[in-house]
Every structure is written in C-alpha cells, then in structure tokens.
Amino acid sequence: MNLLSTFMLAFAMSTDAFAASIGKGAALHRPCLREALRTGLIFGVIEALTPLLGWAIGLAAARYVARWDHWIAFSLLGVLGLRMIYSGLARARADDDPAARPGRHSFWVLALTAFATSIDALTVGVGLAFVDVDILRTAVAIGTATMIMATTGIMLGRMLGSRIGRGAEIGGGVMLIGIGATILAQHLHPF
C-alpha cells in the first residue's frame, strides 16, 4: 500500500470518530481545548490499537485464505464503507438543551465511544493482513488522523452540529469502498 492509500485509509478511518466527537462536542457546555485534546488522545490511541489487533487476527488466518485475500479485503472494506454511508445517511439529528450540557465527558464514556467507532479499524486490520502493508505505519497514521479529527470535532461540535459529521462519515465510507476497489484491481490486473 502506497503513502497516498495509507493517508486515505487513515482519513477514512477517522471520519466516524470525527462524527462522534462532533456529537460529543455538541453535548458539552463550552468545550475547551484541553477537553478536545483529551478526547482526541483517547480516540487516537484506541483507533491505532484496533487495526493492529485485527491485523494479528487476519495474519493467523492468512495462509488459509491467501488465494482469495484480495477479495476478502475488497469485501470487508466494501461492506464497511457501505455501513458507514448508511450510518451517515440514517443518523438522526438530536437537539439538546444547552443549559443541561456537562462540561466534560468521563473517561469511560469516551473510551467506549472510541472503541465503538474503532470496530471498523479492527475489521480493516483483518483485511490488511492479506495485503502487503506496513501495519505499524498504517496504525500510527490511523491513530494520528483520528486524534486530529476527534480533537477538531470536539471544538467544532457546538458550532456546526451533527450535519458535517454525517457528511464526513459518508465520505469516509466512499473512500473505503475506493480503497477496496483499488486493492482488488491491483491484484487482478497488476500494473
């Protein structure tokens, strides 16, 4: 996987965390930069660890499915991309009472949210075990992109609401489908 594909994958993986952090930021009363950085760090670390775990799981099964590895990667990324598009289209917009907003989210609420948004990175990690990829570089890229996007999402949450988060999730889904199609094309017709 080349540098551009790694960048696109990292961005695509960070969009669901971005969307969730916009919601988290919108739920807070005047989120400060410290809270945004804290949230970004929690999301980024969890999002960096899950593709490593998925890659290890996929690597254990690689020798059994080497003949179909590109189809597996394409299918996983395609289904995941479609799920992200559907989620972005189906997400309902919630209106909060601004006076009832907390000033900070608990660590466990953020960690559970980060884990829920990183399930896709776990799945991508499984798919990446079947292709030639530097998994550490990819995991660091995903974690860094997620940290930046989640931090930004918290700060933008109150101003922009959930609309931009939905759009980012849909865009991320489209990118995942594109990456899966690229992997499939490279294996079926090597250049």
Rank of each mutant, 00 (worst) to 15 (best):
D95W: 06
D97F: 08
A48M: 15
L80K: 04
A90D: 00
L89K: 02
H105T: 04
D97S: 07
A90R: 01
F107I: 10
F74D: 01
L59F: 04
P51H: 14
S106C: 06
A100W: 00
R91H: 14
Y64C: 03
P98M: 07
V79D: 02
G88V: 03
Y86K: 04
W108V: 13
G103S: 10
A48H: 06
H105Y: 03
I57D: 01
R91M: 13
A73G: 08
S75I: 14
G103V: 04
S87E: 15
L49V: 15
W68H: 14
G88E: 02
A56F: 05
A99G: 00
R63C: 12
G54E: 03
P98Y: 08
F107H: 06
G88I: 02
A90N: 05
A60C: 08
W71I: 10
T50P: 04
I72E: 04
D69Q: 15
G54A: 05
D97L: 11
L59C: 03
H105M: 08
F107Q: 08
R93A: 14
R67N: 10
W71Q: 09
W68I: 12
G103T: 08
G88F: 00
L59D: 07
A92F: 05
L89A: 11
L82I: 13
E47P: 04
A73P: 05
H105G: 01
V79F: 15
L49W: 08
T50E: 05
P102T: 09
I85D: 01
H70P: 01
A66V: 06
M84N: 03
P102H: 11
W108C: 06
R93Y: 08
F107Y: 13
D97E: 12
W71V: 10
F74G: 01
Y86D: 01
G103H: 13
V65L: 15
S75G: 10
P51N: 14
A100R: 10
L80C: 11
D69I: 06
S75Q: 02
A90I: 02
A92K: 14
W68F: 15
P98E: 11
A94Q: 15
L53G: 03
L52G: 13
R83E: 07
A90Q: 02
H70N: 10
L49N: 12
A92W: 04
A60Q: 12
A48D: 12
G103R: 13
A100N: 07
D95M: 11
I85G: 01
L53W: 02
A66I: 06
L80P: 07
G54P: 05
R104G: 03
F74W: 09
S75P: 00
R63L: 13
T50K: 05
I72S: 04
I57R: 00
G103W: 07
W108K: 06
R104C: 10
Y64A: 09
W108M: 13
A94K: 15
G54Y: 00
D69W: 03
V65I: 14
T50L: 15
G58E: 01
L82M: 09
G88W: 01
I85W: 00
Y64E: 07
R91G: 02
W68T: 11
I72N: 03
A73D: 04
A66R: 12
L49E: 08
I85S: 01
Y64H: 13
R83F: 11
A100I: 04
